[in-house]
Nucleic acid binder design. Structure first.
Lengths: 240, 240
DNA sequence: AACCCGGGCGACCATCGGACGCTGGTGCC
DNA sequence: GGCACCAGCGTCCGATGGTCGCCCGGGTT
């Protein structure tokens, strides 16, 4: 279970020092100034502004941003994932699946931090990995984490959490066959659908019952897959 | 506890038959045509369109809508609430607080229906009273239910759920003093803040632990109130 | 009838969850 | 070096939660 050695290539600083981080309010002083008697109702903090958000000049058709990238922060994209078996380090300019799954753990940690902060500030406390968490991760320098990527592989991580055994053998099989990441990713759906079937088709519940999965939204595709399989089942024994 | 007699004026049809409801897909046929082997992945239902949504020509600056209301559906606004004591029927063109609280029960029933439907369709299942629920209520003819109103009085309903006793006496007191609804509404915050204090300031938890409250979002104002009261507390015994 | 108080709820807004597809990195020949 | 493949993730989109304040109903004078 303790598979968190230094087997990962990328700059995993995981919530490193509050580096290049402009304007983090971070528990800005704001109490200490209680107003009059009905002060209970005189709520201050009008612009609590959850962690540095953008909102700056966003309507200027950011169409152009792609071409010339004037500024110097031109981060190269992450290396693509390849199918690796458990414990295997990816060779060349690739990332392995252990690293992929570690990203999910990192997100969980970022969520913890965000929850802590929002609790201290008396704000709504997220129970899932939300935009806010991705924003926070980026702010803390984990620029290699982003929403589309994490959402893309959620169900793969789900299989990894729910049936380590099956997940591992699937990885091995697909690696041997020389399949690409896309194929492996697709294949991860099937065992999960079976798991849902065994649990009365309550895929939401399957996620929620698992400590690490609870914080991830059930992917639409997986939910739909479960739904159509369920319909297929009840079709064959029609008029139940 | 069984305060659901026919003491309410409005047309409570509550979730009537699937009436004037254009294009309800409702479990549209879509299996039966399993594609090739990887057919499990060929998900149809591209436009599931959760219950009749509007989206029609919305960007035509509906600024003008208020003036002339051309069409005939000019529904008059609901009668204002007045402070009534438990069991008291409001006189004149007013609505009483028992009726207000009944509205919350009706929303709960609408949520049930929406959950049932979304489960049948294999869609995301709401756990709270969302926009979708309000939309459904309107669709079913409960046009007297609307989001701003329900959100406005949530904390009053919360007090009613969590401490019937205190809620009742507050109503009596404010009625006697001839206070208006706004004043009563404001007063409802204080007992709730005390309840939060007694529960480690976890107002979210207080809501979630109550069967009927669980489905309502904690109002921002209440959360902020709890937060500033908590800070006030820890201030006085500084450096704890 | 005229006035003013107070509150119902239409309409708006920032942000959210979700998804597509362009761009360009990568390995192979 | 050139090319074809494929996947990372910037960017967009409809819908959401949340709120403000306009408009007008209603009681009073």
């Amino acid at each position: 279970r303790g598979d968190n050695g230094m087997m990962f290539p990328d700059p995993i600083v995981a919530a490193g020092p509050r580096s290049l981080n402009t304007k983090e309010p971070f528990l800005l002083e704001q109490s200490h100034a209680h107003f009059g008697t009905p002060g209970l109702l005189a709520i201050p903090e009008p612009s609590s502004d959850n962690e540095g958000r953008k909102l700056a000049k966003k309507k200027q058709k950011r169409r152009l941003s792609r071409e010339h990238r004037e500024d110097g922060d031109d981060r190269p994209r992450e290396h693509p994932f390849i199918v690796t078996e458990p414990g295997e380090l990816a060779r060349g300019k690739k990332n392995g699946l252990d690293y992929l799954f570690d990203l999910y753990e990192q997100c969980a940690k970022f969520l913890d931090v965000v929850q802590q902060i929002s609790k201290e500030r008396g704000e709504k406390c997220p129970t899932k990995v939300t935009n806010q968490v991705f924003r926070h991760a980026k702010l803390k320098g984990a620029s290699y984490i982003n929403k589309p990527k994490m959402r893309h592989y959620v169900h793969c991580f789900a299989l990894h959490c729910l049936d380590q055994e099956k997940s591992n053998s699937l990885r091995k099989a697909f690696k041997e066959r020389g399949e690409n990441v896309g194929a492996w990713r697709q294949a991860c759906y099937y065992p999960l659908v079976e798991m849902a079937r065994a649990n009365g088709w309550d895929i939401e519940g399957v996620f929620n019952r698992n400590e690490k999965l609870r914080i991830w939204y059930v992917p639409t595709k997986l939910r739909q897959l479960c739904h159509s399989e369920k319909s297929k089942d009840s079709d064959s024994c029609s008029y139940e």
